[in-house]
């Protein structure tokens, strides 16, 4: 496998809930949302790693921790072998430039009072990417790269459609020549036909610019299409990670299997009336003891309520956190 650019080990992050005076006087224990519960993974140069899971499982928290928008409670993130928490001064600025995040909401992440030219000039200047005289040419190049017409430069964000705004966000991220893109629900807010345009653009840019991508999304079909490898999260933990093909064709965790079965098939002849997963997500404030999935798992047995399963190897590069180790790949998922 190609070289590791980012490795994350034992990441934990929780958000304390408001703990008022009355709570304190009455001796209530402060509560917290456990958004990341011991997350470890590696990101290899040039690959796309997809992160999927249902709402609230910690995908955005993970993405934000990675670009240091959140401080970790525990765990370490290494970038090219160096602990990013130890970076300061120029090294920290270099990290900030080389790892760029693109946000879900193209409307709120662009300043409405700035033209595209000003937005891009600002990005280019912050990291002193180009001498002032070269900036106009670079802006033209960037617009070309994300396939926006050249006259876009002097227009404001509100004059663009959702898909075009998402391209402005991508152009801004690319302006600083990053090596790693962290894309959080990049296309979730877009219509399918426009979604496809942005997906095609991302695939093309990745190849041309040799980008490494962390692609966070809740849409399984999309993640499968884009990713070389996929990690499935549940209640703040990676429950399965592996090469896309292996993970989808021979998933080794009951939750992955439930997600796959629940995603409606595009083929009308493959209908099923069987419910993929019963019950609902447990509260991230009081996650279950033992396996986090034990409240919904059709296979749960004694050990699942007592001991939390850790990720173990299932095949090359494919790990799952489940006490069961025998899932027949031929076993129908529906």
């Amino acid at each position: 496998m190609s070289d590791v650019v980012i490795s994350a080990a034992g990441l934990r992050k929780s958000f304390p809930l408001p703990h008022g005076l009355i709570d304190r006087i009455s001796g209530k224990v402060p509560l917290a949302v456990h958004a990341l519960n011991d997350v470890s993974f590696t990101l290899h140069r040039g690959e796309t790693l997809g992160i999927v899971g249902e709402s609230g499982c910690g995908k955005s928290t993970l993405a934000r921790c990675l670009v240091r928008l959140h401080e970790l409670d525990q765990g370490e993130i290494h970038f090219e072998g160096t602990d990013v928490a130890s970076l300061s001064g120029p090294a920290r600025r270099a990290f900030n430039r080389r790892v760029q995040m693109i946000f879900q909401d193209p409307y709120s992440s662009l300043n409405p009072r700035m033209t595209v030219r000003v937005i891009l000039t600002e990005a280019l200047s912050v990291h002193a990417m180009r001498p002032a005289v070269e900036i106009p040419a670079r802006i033209a190049e960037l617009l070309d790269l994300v396939r926006l017409p050249q006259d876009s430069a002097d227009r404001y964000p509100h004059e663009f459609s959702g898909g075009q705004r998402q391209r402005i966000g991508i152009a801004r991220a690319l302006a600083v020549e990053p090596e790693i893109l962290v894309a959080d629900e990049l296309v979730s807010a877009l219509d399918v036909s426009v979604q496809a345009q942005v997906v095609n653009l991302l695939l093309d840019l990745q190849q041309r610019l040799d980008l490494t991508v962390l692609f966070v999304a809740h849409d399984l079909r999309l993640v499968r299409h884009i990713s070389h490898r996929v990690a499935v999260m549940y209640l703040g933990k990676i429950v399965e990670i592996g090469p896309t093909e292996a993970l989808f064709a021979a998933s080794q965790h009951p939750y992955t299997r439930a997600l796959l079965a629940a995603a409606p098939e595009l083929d009308p002849s493959k209908r099923s009336r069987k419910i993929a997963a019963k019950g609902e997500l447990p509260s991230p404030i009081h996650p279950p003891k033992g396996c986090l999935f034990n409240t919904r798992c059709p296979h749960a047995f004694d050990r699942c309520y007592a001991e939390r399963p850790q990720l173990t190897d299932r095949s090359v590069g494919h790990q799952a956190a489940c006490h069961l180790t025998n899932f027949d790949p031929k076993d129908s998922l529906k």
């Binding site: 399918v192 036909s193 997906v199 095609n200």
Partner: peptide
């Protein structure tokens, strides 16, 4: 036809989707 082609499907991973140019 364009809508159907815009949805990612099994067997076409990492290849360009059909997509529809422009916006509604």
């Amino acid at each position: 036809r364009g809508l159907l082609g815009s949805v990612p499907r099994v067997g076409t991973e990492r290849s360009p989707l059909m997509s529809i140019e422009g916006t509604p």
